[in-house]
Design a protein around this nucleic acid. Structure first.
Lengths: 348, 348
DNA sequence: ATAAGTCACGAAAACGTTTTCGTGTTAAAA
DNA sequence: TTTTAACACGAAAACGTTTTCGTGACTTAT
């Protein structure tokens, strides 16, 4: 079990100085051809590679970016990571992940753990709890120490940093308008509580669509799910709530849900109540994931282009990292990714 | 934009030496109470945190583990990551991810990128291409440099290292025996080509179950899918193959599929052909993911306990990292995670 | 023969820590 | 008064690099 070889060992073995070895390997003109040959051959033989940690310390640059997300077992977030990893790798960066698990304190701890030199910058989607508490001190502190942050999807508008967001409002609006155009007269909304920024925006899109068509929104058609409880394990509670919605409003002929699971569950409940999809009820969800694609009937959804979001976020961050020079004026961008509607069998 | 404060700056400001500052912060008895107070107060005020990179260099230990997987947009792998991250975090480690995207060369590059000091050890599930090529030099080289590897799920038995695997054979066997016990007379298998280690084992489990019940396996009931093509985008091809299977074997009344997607697609095709589930056809899949849970009817699956695999793998790796002393004899463990059958509506 | 210039290399600093060892000052013991 | 011991702190090395600067040995020009 021999350790990795270092410059010092090569130097000792070849009876030259460390500087000479370093220069020889980097092909410096200062070094004679003979010595270069000798050193390079030796290095190759022993498979020398510079130690990343030493380089990071010297250059004060780790070439690593940290991504903090609430959850990884999630189609959307894992796609974003894939996007981030793709461009990070292409541009010579590593990616280190931290999961907040929707908890404020874990988000803070994770960031502090990474902010002490381990990474050059952050890509973040904030946790629900942070959104609720509206405590953003950790973001401000991190940025005040010169570490750039790019937020995506769940962003906070007060914070001055680069952002990549989805056009939630228009995505929702278009979806609902599609339902209206398809003949739906009574469209229900299944959404989250308002503190979830994207839920709020999608709700707003729903309302705007109705307004455009002079339809009076009805409070009883808007179901706000309390998603602090993990709906993966409380599926029945969700089903019950939706069943109540249908039973109290028999005339519902369209559903817009702010995520896949709500939409799928709505379809399931509807089927149980004897409704035929899309004849009696048309359904559109947000977030195009595996569930929508493989459900029967296939679910029409608003696609968020998650991977593209990750790619743009990573490019934004790395651009900022590599152009530190002129960044004194501190300009921040917000990239808006347009959604598009993926039509499947749940709509006419 | 002030940079993070260092020991040196504190020392200069307080007109003491760097050593004194370091010792004061670590509460060394060498330092007087007065000085400690002063230094600690100052450090707190300026929110001093030791630089991780410098510590890594000094201690020759990064407290970071690398996880290399073929794909991240995948329920199984993301659950494993969650498990890894969970225990890594708990034990004071960070997690850095590399995606091989099922490619041999990306796997090698990713490993080399991380092996140069960035991490202390690897957790790996090898790519399909690597399994095909059977080129394992990068694993051996990494380990010969004293960097431990823990393989999970897709492992290679020739390599001497710690492993965490699922009991694929028995999982499959139990599933098929369940089908037999439920009255299935003609059970088809939908699997992958044999170079995929887990596919091979699951196929073997299928055969053993049949043998136990003195049922003669029939070659025409075994469909081996070539999954070098990304089945997410070639869904129709998959459907066609399965449809052929059904049409040539009208008597099929049971399906065992080695993953969720194959099982789900089989259900879809069956329904299209007018078969009722589970009356006419019973289906069991491998890998308990979101699709199985939310499909209609719910799919009975063999659960792999992915998160637990990740946790065990991380514990194994960190144990090894922190017990380097007595590891001279190099003992390697293989942890087998037992599967269990999650029964839903696709079986009687 | 001397001055200037080129060549090939080494010493040392720096990145930010921790830790070992040495040392000057003061107080206690002989 | 002298020796010893405790105390409080600093210098320096080490981790593995890169890079600036210095320098001795030649070669070339004057």
């Amino acid at each position: 079990m021999k350790r990795k070889i270092t410059l010092k060992q090569i130097a000792r073995e070849l009876e030259v100085s460390i500087s000479t070895v370093s220069k020889a390997l980097r092909n410096s003109p200062e070094i004679s051809e003979d010595t270069k040959q000798k050193v390079q051959a030796f290095a190759k033989l022993y498979n020398y590679r510079p130690n990343n940690i030493a380089l990071s310390l010297k250059n004060r640059k780790t070439n690593t970016i940290g991504i903090i997300i609430p959850e990884i077992v999630h189609h959307f977030f894992s796609k974003v990571i894939r996007g981030v990893e793709l461009v990070a790798n292409k541009r010579g960066y590593n990616v280190i992940i931290g999961l907040s698990n929707e908890s404020f304190s874990k988000e803070v701890i994770n960031m502090e753990m990474l902010a002490n030199g381990s990474i050059d910058g952050f890509i973040i989607s904030i946790s629900k709890e942070t959104q609720q508490l509206q405590d953003y001190h950790h973001f401000n502190e991190t940025m005040s120490q010169g570490m750039p942050i790019v937020m995506f999807d769940r962003v906070v508008s007060d914070i001055k940093c680069d952002k990549v967001i989805v056009d939630d409002l228009n995505g929702a609006k278009n979806a609902v308008e599609k339902l209206i155009a398809n003949g739906c007269k009574s469209i229900a909304l299944i959404t989250t509580k308002d503190y979830v920024s994207v839920g709020k925006l999608r709700t707003q899109g729903y309302l705007e669509a109705l307004e455009n068509y002079k339809i009076q929104p009805k409070a009883e058609l808007i179901l706000k799910i309390d998603d602090t409880l993990d709906y993966e394990t409380h599926l029945e509670a969700l089903e019950d709530e939706i069943e109540q919605l249908f039973k109290s409003n028999r005339h519902i002929d369209g559903i817009f849900a702010v995520n896949e699971l709500y939409a799928l569950t709505a379809m399931k409940v509807a089927r149980k109540l004897g409704l035929e999809i899309p004849k009696d009820l048309q359904v559109i969800g947000f977030t195009d994931g595996v569930l929508s694609k493989h459900s029967t009937p296939g679910l029409t959804t608003v696609s968020q282009h998650a991977q593209q979001m990750g790619e743009r976020a990573a490019d934004l961050l790395i651009d900022k990292l590599e152009n530190k020079i002129e960044t004194e004026e501190e300009e921040f961008q917000t990239i808006v990714i347009e959604t598009n509607l993926v039509e499947r069998e749940s709509t006419k």
